[in-house]
Design a protein around this nucleic acid. Structure first.
Length: 426
RNA sequence: GGUGCGUUGGCUGAGUGGUCGAAAGCGCCGCAUUCGAAAUGCGGUAUGCCAGCAAUGGUAUCUAGGGUUCGAAUCCCUAACGCACCUCCA
């Protein structure tokens, strides 16, 4: 959500920023609606002022027992009132349209975000770790997995495509990965562990920006609840509508939850394996911070995600997303892409975004600056995966695979594996 | 799923259909007092929009949306949320 005042004062800057994202200019239509809406408001308020004045006089007249004057005034007010609903209706319609357009616009990219159309124009910032050299034919996880407890057929029989049924040591490994990452984020990186709802209402989805534009990406129950596509929704909305004390900031939250995505529009993409599922687990990080610190927090959060990959000794690269590849709510995003030897490529495993006040405005999440009794400011919000559990599982299986089809367990995960040191093919 | 009660400013909490943007207290800010502080006293303390250089004035907002009325924090309806009891159930 954008500040209409800012647009009023900087229409060209606003449109230029939208253009960098490849979005159509919007300032002109917004300002036209804004002007109309305000003109109608004024008109309405003039009418209301006269009505209120007359109504007060009626009260006085009645108090003095002057029934005649009261009747005359009442007639006048009735006349006045007959015209008001029409203006009211117009005003509602105009400001409704204004809100709709405003609510559907993406965030403005930060100045240092590279301009580009799609992922091909993302910029590699750094690379960590050396891809392992294999002395046997490397296989994809979808190839290795079935003998280790990764069962797509059983899942398909009950749920269809893009679901997985994990068994035995494979299920255990997924649990170990989730537990390990949650422990790291809470005990090492200062995030508070949360266990939030995974079903949320419309306004929560609007607050974090999934609605109104991206409803087709998520599942909705027959009751009207949405299944969260990421715990970002639940965690960020925990401060929705609140006025925090400056001293409470920063708030750092994390949660391990299932995430649900319809993957509409990605038909034919990543159909093999665990990469793109309707349901997957993810450890999410969210930070609610003072506006002055959001850029630093962005780096901090990215490092928190990187620390997991380093501990698991998984090679990765850090990408700065270009304007065309960023999510609608982000001002700036770093993606971490893990090396998948089976696919001979780097694949996204974490996405860390700073949203500025874009979500905070939508949620009306504010803080009260220290030492001031009045006045509030919007907080800044950030979110990032720390990390996606399913894709981490893929990365472990592919990077730690052995010639005999077994998979060794990264040292960091051993304490979570209950004595299992290797996944053995059945 | 059923019944009842509730939702007021940063917080607590009054409020008979007109004089209520709303008592009082707390908190916060300023001033006085003090060497300084505490305590005390005095004053000030919501937000959006419109007009205005400004002071200020107008208007809307007492969870939200409808309605009744010349006039609604106050009456009616609906929803959301909270609490209690009942029913059911991991």
């Amino acid at each position: 959500m954008h500040d209409i005042k800012y647009i009023r004062e900087n229409p060209e800057v606003f449109d230029a920023a939208l253009a960098r994202r490849g979005a159509e200019p919007a300032a002109q239509i917004l300002l036209a609606l804004d002007e109309q809406s305000r003109a109608l408001k004024t008109q309405l308020q003039d009418g209301q002022a006269r009505r209120n004045e007359a109504s007060k006089s009626i009260g006085k007249a009645k108090g003095q027992g002057d029934e005649e004057t009261a009747q005359a005034l009442m007639a006048e007010v009735a006349e006045l009132k007959s015209k008001m609903p029409e203006i009211e209706e117009q005003e509602r319609e105009v400001s409704g349209r204004l809100q709709n357009i405003l609510g559907a616009l993406p965030n403005l990219p930060a100045d240092d975000v590279p301009i580009g159309d799609d992922e091909d124009e993302n910029v590699e910032v750094e690379r960590w770790g050396m891809p392992r050299v294999f002395d046997f034919p490397v296989r994809e996880h979808s190839d290795i997995g079935p003998d280790l407890g990764l069962d797509f057929e059983t899942a398909a029989s009950m749920s269809g495509a893009r679901f997985a049924f994990l068994r035995g040591q494979m299920a255990r490994l997924q649990r170990a990965i989730g537990q390990y990452m949650l422990d790291q984020q809470t005990m090492e990186n200062g995030f508070q562990e949360c266990a939030p709802p995974v079903l949320v209402r419309d306004h929560a989805m609007f607050g974090t920006g999934q609605l109104p534009k991206f409803s087709e990406d998520s599942f909705q129950t027959t009751e009207g609840h949405w299944l969260i596509p990421t715990a970002e929704v639940s965690l960020t909305n925990s401060v929705s509508g609140q006025i925090l004390d400056e001293g409470q900031l920063p708030i750092r939250l994390t949660a391990l939850t299932p995430c649900f995505r319809s993957e509409a529009g990605s038909a034919g993409k990543d159909t093999k394996g665990l990469i793109r599922q309707h349901q997957f687990e993810k450890v999410e990080m969210v930070a609610i911070v003072h506006p002055d610190t959001s850029d630093d927090e962005h780096l901090r959060m990215t490092e928190a995600a990187e620390s997991i990959l380093k501990a698991l000794e998984l090679p990765y690269r850090k990408m700065l997303l270009c304007t065309g590849d960023m999510g609608a709510t982000a001002r700036k995003t770093y993606d971490l892409e893990v090396w998948l030897p089976g696919q001979d490529t780097y694949r996204e495993i974490s996405s860390v975004s700073v949203c500025g006040e874009y979500q905070a405005r939508r949620m009306n999440a504010r803080f009260r600056p220290e030492g001031e009794s009045k006045g509030t400011q919007f907080v800044h919000t950030l979110n990032g995966s720390g990390l996606a559990v399913g894709r981490t599982l893929v990365a472990v299986v592919e990077n730690y695979q052995q010639a005999d089809g077994s998979v060794t367990i990264p040292t960091a995960l051993l304490p979570y594996m209950g004595g299992i040191e290797k996944l053995e093919p059945a």
